[in-house]
Simulated assay, not measured.
Amino acid sequence: MNGSPAMLNDFLKYYSTVLRYMDNYISEPINRYHMTFDAFLILHEIGASTKPILLMDIADSHHVSRSAISRQISTLLKYDYVYQVANPADRRQKSLLLTEKGQATDKQLIHDISLIFNQWIDQLGANRIQAMLTFFSDFTQQVIEPQQK
């Protein structure tokens, strides 16, 4: 066994505390707009895309089913954050675009989340935040992505 029982206990304690804290602080401004964090990520991805983006493109990039993305998009449609444009060559394919309300919401949420993130940088220092991000990247590449193949 590679880790000690104490290491596992520390992991469980910090996993619960830190991730709940991060989730609560990041989700709080998002919840005001009747969205989940996942819906916000989709909203932001649609807004950041330089080309028309399809539901299946989003599902692929998030490594989830089309139905899971469809549920999130239905919320974004309901609150008028996105709209769909049918492909004239294949009307089953619909590009997703942000409405003006969606653009303003994305901009406001990025601002709000940036304030929170910048507080963490001020408290912990840029080097420690970068080390955390590097760890998350390594974890994604070495643990998550191999399991998805």
Rank of each mutant, 00 (worst) to 15 (best):
L124N: 11
R128G: 02
E100N: 09
I58K: 00
I129H: 06
K101W: 01
S61E: 06
F117T: 05
Q123N: 12
A104M: 11
Y83N: 08
I116Q: 07
Y83Q: 10
A131I: 04
W120C: 10
A68I: 01
L97T: 02
R92D: 11
T75W: 13
L109Y: 08
S61W: 04
Q84Y: 06
A68T: 06
L98Y: 04
Q130E: 14
K78I: 08
I116T: 05
K94P: 00
P88I: 13
V64W: 04
H63P: 00
I73S: 01
A68V: 05
I113G: 01
Q123L: 15
I113S: 04
L97M: 09
T105I: 07
R66M: 12
D60W: 06
I73D: 02
I113M: 01
G102N: 08
L77V: 05
I69Q: 03
D106H: 02
Q84I: 02
R128Q: 14
N127C: 10
A89I: 07
I53P: 00
R71V: 09
L77D: 02
I129T: 02
L115E: 15
S61L: 14
V82W: 00
V64Q: 06
A126E: 14
D122N: 07
V82F: 08
R66L: 10
L98P: 00
V85L: 15
G102H: 10
Y83W: 09
D106R: 07
I110E: 14
S70F: 06
I129D: 02
A104E: 15
H111D: 12
